[in-house]
Design a protein around this nucleic acid. Sequence first.
DNA 1: GCCGTTTTCGGCCCGACTGTTTTCAGTCG
Length: 578
Amino acid sequence: MDNMDNKEIAIIFERIADLMELLGENHFRINSYRKAARVVGELTEAVAELAAAGRLEEIPGIGKSTAEKIRQYIETHRIEQYDQLQARVPQGLPALLEIGGLGPKTVAKLWKQGQIESVAELKQVLQDDPGRLVKLEGFGAKKIQQMAESLAFAESSGGRIRLDEATALAEELAEAVRACKGARRVEVAGSLRRGKETIGDIDILCEATEDIAPQIIETFVQTEAVGRVLAQGETKGSVVTEGGVQADLRVMQRESFGAALAYFTGSKEHNVRLRELAVRRGWKLNEYGLYDEDCRLAGRTEEEIYRALGLAYVQPELREDRGEITAAARKNIPKLIELADVKGDLHMHTVASDGRNTIEEMIDACRAKGYRCMAICDHSKSEVQANGLDEKRLAAHADAIRKAARKYKDITVLAGCEVDIFKDGSLDFWADVLAELDFVTASPHSALSLGRAEATSRLVRAIETPHVHCIGHPSGRLINRRAGMEIDIETIAHAAAANDVALEINAHPWRLDLRDTHARAAVAAGAKIIISTDAHDTGGLDLMKYGVLTARRGWVTADDVINTWPATKMKAWLKSKR
DNA sequence: GCCGTTTTCGGCCCGACTGTTTTCAGTCG
């Protein structure tokens, strides 16, 4: 069964919502399709399997009507309603919604009153005859100018950026705001605070008194990294950086800071759920606080708000409307892993293959981090471009690692390797070679366009191979660059649990693989996790924080993660695989 | 279209900023 169905259906539901919006249909119905698109897109199980088991309607957000459409798609690869909607709207019209500042009402007017049906046509009219647009109701000179700018910008901008890029950019902007006189507290919020793997825009929150807020906004929009100012008000500023990333700053007063932090951390869906809870009690929740009529019930801290709503505190990484509200209501939120829980790093490279530092340098760097354990896992021979080791070089390298390791009492240094998983699931080394090592990570590096079924049996075969401790970056994806393999995480996780093999969360911000939803499905199936950096130099060891964020987004606790375990427990596990 | 410790109908989150407006609609987050 092919999980591509999930992605396709999510895209179609999203497009149905767009089309309905252009046709001016009921907002709540439209929202239902957007929600259905999201939950289907985030599912780790294939819709076809759920449909076969008659369990589609169990998915929250999927009701009778959307379930029927999913079944229709599985059977016919079409959704009738989508075809009908498409026939009523010019083909090029929905693309106009992608342009900033253009919403459904504006695009509908361009279409019905201005006979403009595509991005190309809008561009043409803006160039040749902008006067034609002034005749449309609600269109003035400024709006037309803004449309021209947005259009030019849309052609040059790049979409979402990776977590590490966003972190650096946000810190730069936050520093500029922190330097403002009267800025009492500055926090980065938004999807960055939630640790999402890619970031669409940067949200910064500043605590200051009302009188100096405009001055702080002014300083923010003047920051060096800013390329264009989208909006500038008394308490809110919105800019696009030189690099094409949108950043928003809000200045709030102390009594509202927690409410604002919750509000701007999102996700939007999580906030909607919180507000629904408030409304149910006859209260109101906004970015200024939680109110009963005019009486403020909470707002200074996030904790106050969750408590007032009868919920356990929900860590930012969990705020995705993936069941955390229900868990918080039952005081059932897991104690998530923290960076400080990590006691070692079990995937790193040295100059022996494609790393940049020596064994000794990597050991010193790990000791400086306070790690008690580490594994050096250079590439195997098929990774020719990465200077992979053959059996002979591997043996010599293992000797060198063990010799270096003997110098240190404070850290256990494991002689390991990152052995290639071939297309059919066999490995680059025979079992007798692997048996000589202290730690074996098996990873896919090529043939990453395999279909779901083949990819899954490939990894399952690797999992079942003796002496394998861990599967490295299981999907092989590179964020924003290649999708990697579609995998059936349920099947893989059950195999991993049955064979006592760990699944890696590769902490490199280009990979984050297992991804958040896969990590959650893995631990739910009883599989163990190892979070490693795949460092290719000493600086790469610092990337652990991104892996931990991803684990937290996957509801992972320290107990689930082998490289947080006490030394004796971990050594017992390592030996059991030899 | 979905959903239910105000259940099978009648709800469904909230405010800042902008532009085109004399009181508000549209967009965005």
